[in-house]
Structure formats: structure tokens, C-alpha cells
Amino acid sequence: MPPESPAPTVVVAAALYDTDERLLAARRSAPPELAGRWELPGGKVEPGETPERALVRELREELGIEAEPLARVPGEWPLKAGYVLRVWRCHLRSGAPRPLQDHDELRWLTADEVWSVDWLDQDVPAVKEVLRDRD
């Protein structure tokens, strides 16, 4: 019997909307191979941390905001080997998002503008599901 492969590291991301129903996108500034491409903001779940707590922590660290995860968007998407992306719809509780780590620009996108940015390849299926989940 082959050895079991370890559980993937979960990367969480936020489908964060403002009061005008625009989706927040973040442009990567690092690492170099991802710089200039756009993603849903978030980060890795640390050992002993729930995905929802990780998302709250990551949004505080990366964007300087307090957010509340509301519901998980159906699905999960493979990233690089050993990583999987899961997305939550989130409510902005306080603060104004600003790029603090790994990003150099943020943009609020209307439904008509969502595909005007160059999303990271691995985020495209997640963004499609976020849009589908809103309908």
C-alpha cells in the first residue's frame, strides 16, 4: 500500500465586496514570477488555525482591515504542489483596504470590470465561481 500523501496546505482568499457590490482585487508585487498579476487577497492557514481565523489574520496583515468571513464559496482549486485554494465571501467590518504586504495596488471591480485585470492563472477558476455564487 503506498504511503498517504500529506494533507495539502490550505490557502484562503476573500471575496470581499464594498457597499457598491464591487469585488476587491490585489496586484502582486512579489515574488517576481507573480508580480503584476492580480489575485483575491488572503494567505496560508498556519498550523492549529482555522481557515476563517487565518483569513481574518491575513486580511489584517495584508490590507489593514477587519473582515468577517460569511460563507465559503463552493469548491477548492489546486495551486502549486501541496497547496489548495479555498475562498470565503467576506464582509468588511472596519478599515480601508491598502496594500501592506506582497501587493502594490488594490482595485475595486464592478461585475463588468472583473476581467479587466490580469488574474493569476490559479485564481481564474475561483473568481469564476465567486461570480457564479453571487447570482
Results as ranks from 00 to 15, higher is better:
M1T: 14
P3V: 10
E4W: 10
S5T: 12
V11Q: 06
A13R: 09
A14G: 11
A14K: 02
L16P: 14
D18N: 15
T19N: 12
D20Q: 13
E21I: 09
E21H: 15
E21R: 15
L23D: 00
L24V: 10
A25N: 09
A26V: 02
R27M: 01
S29E: 11
P31E: 08
P31N: 10
P31D: 07
E33T: 07
G36A: 04
R37W: 09
R37T: 15
W38V: 08
E39Q: 12
L40E: 10
L40V: 12
P41W: 03
K44C: 11
V45D: 06
V45Q: 06
E46W: 12
E46R: 14
E46H: 13
E46D: 13
G48S: 08
E49G: 08
E49W: 09
T50L: 02
P51S: 00
E52M: 10
E52R: 13
A54S: 15
V56P: 03
E61P: 02
E62Q: 12
E62C: 04
E62M: 08
G64D: 05
I65K: 00
E66Q: 14
E66F: 07
E66W: 08
A67W: 05
L70R: 03
A71W: 01
R72G: 08
P74F: 06
W77Y: 11
W77V: 09
L79Y: 12
K80F: 14
A81S: 12
A81M: 07
A81W: 05
Y83K: 15
V84R: 15
V87G: 11
V87H: 09
V87P: 13
W88L: 03
R89S: 12
H91E: 15
L92W: 08
R93D: 07
G95P: 00
A96Y: 06
R98K: 12
L100C: 05
E105A: 13
L106C: 02
L106Q: 03
L106N: 03
R107Q: 11
R107F: 10
W108G: 04
W108D: 02
L109E: 01
T110I: 03
E113L: 08
V114A: 08
W115M: 01
D118G: 03
D118P: 04
W119Y: 03
D121R: 14
D121F: 08
D121E: 15
A126V: 09
A126K: 03
K128D: 11
K128C: 01
E129Q: 14
V130Y: 08
V130D: 07
V130Q: 06
L131R: 07
R132F: 02
R132G: 00
D133F: 15
D133V: 05
R134Q: 11
